[in-house]
Amino acid sequence: MDFQTAVFYFLSAILVFASLRVITARNPVHAALHLILAFFTCGGIWALLQAEFLAIAIILVYVGAVMVLFLFVVMMLDVNIDRIRQGFWNYLPLGALLGLLMVLEMSLVLGSKYFQIPAAEAMLPAGISNTKSIAALMFTDYVYPFELASLILLVGMIAAIVLTHRGPKKSKYTNPNQQVFVKAKDRVRVLQMPVEKD
């Protein structure tokens, strides 16, 4: 077993463990933290496959931004574990069926040849930038699917705002935009008073 295979198995073991802990951890913050660990090791495995752009992108986007907000929300929640567990056995058959379907689909997509580390001849020649190749593909061959995906994301974002927006604020609030433009002469009046004499 060469060094690369050893690293692959090491990362995969962490990834499987972390993914399992995501669904078994009782504390939701611990679950979120294990999800972060899973994303990070996933990035590590992609880096091993010489897909450095994808590896860094998943860490930058998911670990660096999405999970921070996720953790932000999870920390605020007061989760009652017992109430969540109530319907566990009722939902188990449906959940197991869906899980099985997903495993089936994934194994169809990923043929057996992808279940191993690429041989040395499949490695990229030096001097070809991973980032540039992805960009070239994304903005030539796949430009319409790519733009469509960004449009769908935009629609999702606007929908979330529309669903949660409760109309204009009725309470009193300060507008920092106006505050920063205040000048001393708007607020302070200097009076000239004649000196009092007895």
């Binding site: 450095e52 860094i56 992108a57 860490i59 930058l60 660096g64 921070v68 930038s129 991973n130 980032t131």
Partner: peptide, 15 residues
């Protein structure tokens, strides 16, 4: 090759 991206990814984890 992607050192700038690497820096952005790593520093975003400091939070």
């Amino acid at each position: 090759d992607a050192s700038l991206l690497y820096i952005m990814a790593i520093t975003s984890m400091g939070v």
